[in-house]
């Protein structure tokens, strides 16, 4: 190792060291120099770029959309996608925005988000499962059933549903919206079929709301689980299992028409 080389290495690293020291000082000053934000905290920037124009499915809603209870993790949405792919030999785009435990109020918020709106705009089909958590509240509603409270939460739910469908239609009026009805997971626990009446009533009211919107379709699932419900439920006795999701998917998939000239 020659002397000039060593000297050069020394000088270079000395400069790097000083530079790093300078960066460090600057970082600390910058971090504590209280500047106010240049960006509005709450305003959002509109997104200009559009998503690709392929056949797109947006799935919104609660744990059913997420696929909770299906050990393969697909849920009815994943199964519907597989069905579509095998029927049309092409892969549809899917945005699954389902969140476990989501109630209608939260979905109202979610469909107002910019990016969610952009995805909805690109959608050809929108699948929605909502209301299960509004009604059952993790089983509480049915254990100590309070008619008063139930009718309040139902009213709130119906109002939210109106708002969701209105927003969806506003963002995208060509997409078909499939809203899945509720099934009754407690049917076998219930002797006098009280819960059946509640769920049926809930579904009827939901169908009434859906009927106001011309691209929206109410898809019942009540009958699918009416007989031998336990065969189709996951071990939590609330969410469907793989077979349960298969039943739902078999009902939804044939309704979806994938036509290129649609858009």
């Amino acid at each position: 190792m020659s002397k000039p080389k060593v000297l050069a290495a020394t000088i270079v690293s000395a400069f790097i060291g000083l530079f790093c020291l300078f960066c460090l000082g600057w970082t600390i000053i910058d971090h504590y120099g209280k500047k106010t934000s240049e960006m509005g905290a709450n305003e959002t920037t509109p997104i200009k770029k559009n998503l690709p124009d392929d056949f797109t499915v947006v799935a919104l809603g609660d744990s059913l959309t997420r696929g909770t209870g299906d050990e393969t993790g697909k849920g009815y949405v994943g199964l519907v996608m597989e069905d579509l792919e095998s029927e049309y030999h092409r892969k549809p785009l899917i945005h699954n925005l389902g969140i476990n435990g989501q109630v209608s109020q939260e979905l109202v918020q979610q469909v107002k988000q910019t990016e969610v709106k952009r995805q909805i705009q690109a959608a050809d089909v929108i699948l929605v499962t909502i209301g299960g958590n509004d009604l059952f509240q993790k089983g509480q509603t049915l254990i100590d059933y309070d008619r008063e409270a139930a009718s309040v939460s139902q009213k709130k739910y119906l109002k939210n549903l109106h708002e969701i469908l209105k927003d969806l239609n506003h963002v995208n009026d060509t997409a078909t919206i499939f809203l899945l009805g509720l099934y009754n997971p407690f049917i076998e626990l219930d002797e006098d079929l009280d819960t059946n009446r509640i769920v049926r009533d809930w579904n009827n009211e939901t169908a009434e709301v859906v009927a106001h919107y011309k691209n929206a379709i109410f898809v019942p699932t009540f009958d699918l689980f009416q007989l031998s419900v336990n065969e189709y439920l996951y071990s939590d006795k609330f969410h469907p299992n793989k077979e349960g999701y298969r039943l739902i998917a078999d009902r939804v998939a044939p309704l979806i028409k994938w036509e290129d000239e649609e858009r």
Partner: peptide, 16 residues
């Protein structure tokens, strides 16, 4: 998985 290279869709999925 997402069928698009748009980062926003990916980020939205992360948020979900």
């Amino acid at each position: 998985k997402l069928g698009t290279s748009d980062w926003r869709a990916a980020l939205q999925q992360q948020i979900i």
